[in-house]
Design a protein around this nucleic acid. Sequence first.
DNA 1: CTAGGGTTAG
Length: 511
Amino acid sequence: MCDLIIFFLFLLRLPNAQTHCSIFLVIFFINSMSIPFVSRFLSSSIRPKNPGSSFTTLSVTNPVEKYWIHLDSNDPSIEKALTKVGAKLDSSCVKEVINRCNSANQSPILGLRFFIWAGIQREYRHSSYMYNIACKQFRINQNPNLIRDVIDAYNLDNCVVNVKSFKIVLNLCKEARLADEALWVLKKMIDFNCRPDTSAYNAVIRLYCETGRVDEALSLMEEMSLSNLYPDMVTFVSMVKGFCDLGRVEDASRLFKVVNQQGCSPNVVAYSVLLDGICRVGNLEKGLNLLQEMENEGGVCAPTVVTYTTMIRSFCEKDRSMEALTVLDRMEACGCAPNRVTISTLINGLCQEDQVEEAYKVIDRLAAKGSVSKSECYSSLVVTLLRVNKFEEGEKVFRRMLVSDLKPDGVACSEMLKRLCLKEKRVLVAFVLYNEIEKLGFAACIDSEIYSIMMDGLCTESHLLEASKLAKSMVQKSIQLKAPYVQNVVEYLKKAGEMELVSRIYKVNDG
DNA sequence: CTAGGGTTAG
């Protein structure tokens, strides 16, 4: 609201202030109403009432169907129609509708408009998972012009588009990593009488930073002040990270000076990013100095788990994991508890340098303190040992966990079984181990892909008894057999006469 | 309700 007033005052200073003002007041009025209200208002007063596009029958109860009817009816005011539907929105509904748009060979613009419309509804918010789904479904990466097309479509159909809609589009750009399109969208906002805010700028700036175009990001940041917007900590962190990713640590540090001069103190996130950048260019000693400064400064700068973990990781990556241990000491001395990431980073570094004994020591020491459980520590150890090709040791640890009632996590179980099946070619052993995991009640965390791999292996080696046992267990748990393994498995089971099992497998796979 | 930032593993 405050921003709006500033903008209003800004407009008053322009030569043709009166026109601007009246436009502004209209926008202001519309913006302050909720979208459903606006469209109700518009549709009852302007549009003729035709509640019956002939498709709308009373028998349609499924939300997906209800929305789909309107998308399939070629009505240019899609959004108004959608708003009138009033059916419950959730992610599975959104997913299904856009899925259907694509399979029905409808224009992707239609599906996109639905997606954007859904995202601005009060009772619903797109998760980042949904943005990912949308990008894949509409193949936005392959067709970046869709972004421009959908905005143009709004223009053509005279749609009321608000800032929130633009945010959805910007988020799509972010997911698809389309910096230029995002900037285009940002510039386009003004045509729809929408004023980009700091978060809109931040989205674009971040995209430019992530794609290595930091200098363009910098000029966008400077442009913000022309719209009476001020870069905030998020803007600043993006810029610092952008420079650091390019190894331009000096430029990143210079930003800190500017911020300090403006009387702001960069927070721990900003410093942590800088610390990471300094370490990445190989200057670990300078990194340690910065860490020291942060500790001395305290307050918003006080190092957190993430800061210390970054420092630890840097030492590990430079094959100096024994020194990483001293950072751990320091961290604990400062009262900062290591978390799971800290531990796996350390374990990883130590094992890579053949210091497995030290890894055990660290685990004993940390598990005693209790900020990370023994189960988590040993799970990390198992995964690491497999990764650094110390399989026997990993298997030993894994089995010891099972007999001492330490629950291995999903990644540890999955990696163990996968390795036994694929590289070690010990499918039967994997199957027996799986049964043990199951008996202990830990099987729920196993990746569904692993079942398929085990199934495939058992069939290939003609272990009929075990294969049918596993298949039954999969059917019972509704775990799908993944596509690449279907043929081999089904062929084998058919040959063995397990026709019923095959049909049950197909049933699971068809959903 | 009202965004957006930093660390690991598969």
